[in-house]
Design a protein around this nucleic acid. Sequence first.
DNA 1: AAAATTATTTAGATTTGTCTAAATAATAAT
DNA 2: ATTATTATTTAGACAAATCTAAATAATTTT
Lengths: 219, 219
Amino acid sequence: MNLSIAEENYVKAIYKLQDGDTAVTTNALAYELDTKPASVTDMAKKLKEKQLIDYEKYQGITLSSEGRKTALQIVRRHRLWECFLVDKLAFSWEEVHELAEELEHVRSEKLTNRLSEYLGNPTVDPHGDPIPDAHGKMVKPRPQTSLDQANAKRLVVTAVTDQSTALLAFLNAKGIGLGTQLEILAHYEYDNSIEIKIKHAPALTISEQVAKNIMVRPV
Amino acid sequence: MNLSIAEENYVKAIYKLQDGDTAVTTNALAYELDTKPASVTDMAKKLKEKQLIDYEKYQGITLSSEGRKTALQIVRRHRLWECFLVDKLAFSWEEVHELAEELEHVRSEKLTNRLSEYLGNPTVDPHGDPIPDAHGKMVKPRPQTSLDQANAKRLVVTAVTDQSTALLAFLNAKGIGLGTQLEILAHYEYDNSIEIKIKHAPALTISEQVAKNIMVRPV
DNA sequence: AAAATTATTTAGATTTGTCTAAATAATAAT
DNA sequence: ATTATTATTTAGACAAATCTAAATAATTTT
């Protein structure tokens, strides 16, 4: 099947938002893709026509098995290019998302597989997210929660879910990156802020909003 | 300026066809881009609006200096990706054109420059074509003519201008590739064929049509 | 130089992906 | 169980890039 870049982006976004077999809502998808709900409805009809999603009016969207396969291919390409940019071209991990967003749309299995091989068939990308192999299989992501609802005290940063340049640059400035070890000092309910301390650095306060996008696991 | 992929392809094609200050015709551009003359006229108006070309009705198209700059950037990206695919991912020179055709549209100067550096700032691509540097400067292409109008007898293949997969596979089957040394045995006018002999191989006959796309220099 | 041919442009339509505004359905609140 | 609110869909429009068919300009031929 020959998908347009727009269609690929929808499939990828549905994959990202779909948790288990819970259907993705029109509004959530519109927000994720920075577009309008009406546009999502339009595209849903097209993707249903192409059998990539299951969709009934007002019932939300789920990927079909064909759609899931397609999504995994796109995710694979995205994460491999991120590895390439970081490992080979010395980009920093917060710069690569937007570039990979473009490179991922070059749909050549041969290129993808050669790239993977060249990189030593990595199983996780620079953000800590697992890379599907050529058959769509991937290692199960390490047990991780977002920082705002972690209950352990000593944590290590494993990923950042919102990969906007703005947020990533912000975290970089604060000294927070992949692998950063930190400790939760306090969680203030009244202003939704979290006080943390990074190893060998003074304590600092971040908003819950930001903490939601920082994935961590106990260390 | 933010160009669409279609606009970039037009600029690149105009650059390719424009020889000196001779204007490119609507028909030639339509043929090159495998589209219709009417579409070229439509796009010419848009590119003129964006000041990338000089264009007056019925007078043909030439790149403006801004357009030339843009074209060189695209050509630079294309040829660097070709180098990457051949040098790093072990693609053969005839496979890379179509992939580079997609990769070239990722417009990031930082990526382009890092890629160039990673490849050792190459000055020619796997087809023997020169690669513009970050400022648009490139080495002057080696003196080469197409095989059908070469007058020297002993020649070496330096490039293939029509990089369609079909032609490249055909040449590959015949044992003709970049760097292949050959000798012109005869040029038959009455059926527009050329008889050549490749080193260490029996003589073979190719059409003038094919020979037009094989660039050679005396050896 | 008129006629024939070829090249180019215009006019109007189509597809893709998007939008706004209005209508309808689903859900939540009273 | 109505009412209010929120979510979703429909209807109609638009921009980009293309097309076909018809009109016009340029060039070549006789």
